[in-house]
Design a protein around this nucleic acid. Sequence first.
DNA 1: ATCTTAATTGAAAATGGTTTTCATTTATAA
DNA 2: TTATAAATGAAAACCATTTTCAATTAAGAT
Lengths: 143, 143
Amino acid sequence: MTSKSIAAELRKRGFKLTPQRRAIIDVINESEEHLTPSDIYSRLQHKYPGIGLVTVYRTLELLESSGLLCEVHIGDTCRSYLTRPGGHHHHLVCRGCGKVVDFTDCELDGLENRLVNETGFEIDRHLLEFMGRCINCRKNKKN
Amino acid sequence: MTSKSIAAELRKRGFKLTPQRRAIIDVINESEEHLTPSDIYSRLQHKYPGIGLVTVYRTLELLESSGLLCEVHIGDTCRSYLTRPGGHHHHLVCRGCGKVVDFTDCELDGLENRLVNETGFEIDRHLLEFMGRCINCRKNKKN
DNA sequence: ATCTTAATTGAAAATGGTTTTCATTTATAA
DNA sequence: TTATAAATGAAAACCATTTTCAATTAAGAT
């Protein structure tokens, strides 16, 4: 999903498209890593000095509740975001550099059906993430 | 895992077994739900009035770093704990009452191997949770 | 192009969860 | 029973997040 299409989506939902929001979307979208609010804030310092951290929080909430962002859970924090490729997908996260690779086919239907039968639960959501070290971090031995 | 075996495990690691720690372990262990630090604190009020919230935090950290607790991620907060049945397992969480059912066979080896081959990542961990509504909450229609 | 208005922003203050500090107490082993 | 390091509780500190509010601005109407 491009910055432009995210911006367009926001507008379609009746929100204003401010330069601050553009800048925030760009920063998140340009990163291969998942970013916390303060990561985003510090990366904004040259693109939009003077922007308020509050605005970052507000924009993240807006994007998240519109389904335009997704969270990464594995790792230290639980408040770390990515722009979303759209549709159902999962993450493979590098513990070295934070890079995130998406994958779409989670092959969990069989397991989900079994759990539904065995437990009587009605299942509506799942969370699946893999964590490890990406090829670069393995080569470099650092991180 | 019983409260006793958790306590024994702590002691084996050289930690003191205080009545506060016993009480905290009991509270977590007796619950079918995942509990936040303040959930635990309030449930302790009759079992151990006067206990400090700080002690709850410290004990949680101790138990977690000893691998005697595990976290639940799906839901509102990311700081919600359960005592652990031991060994690799996953959670099925009810969004109504918070009840957690464990399951062990996650059948993710095939997917993991494929991801390793496709991405060059080395994978060492995964997070898998299902969320839905348990049989009771479905019947009661409330929650 | 200008005006109008509701949405948005930024600064400061408030909030709330978590951690640190430190003096006191206590579990455990000698 | 005693000695000692570990653990506790209260208060303060900390830090991320949210709220408040006055000033600014995007976007549609004129």
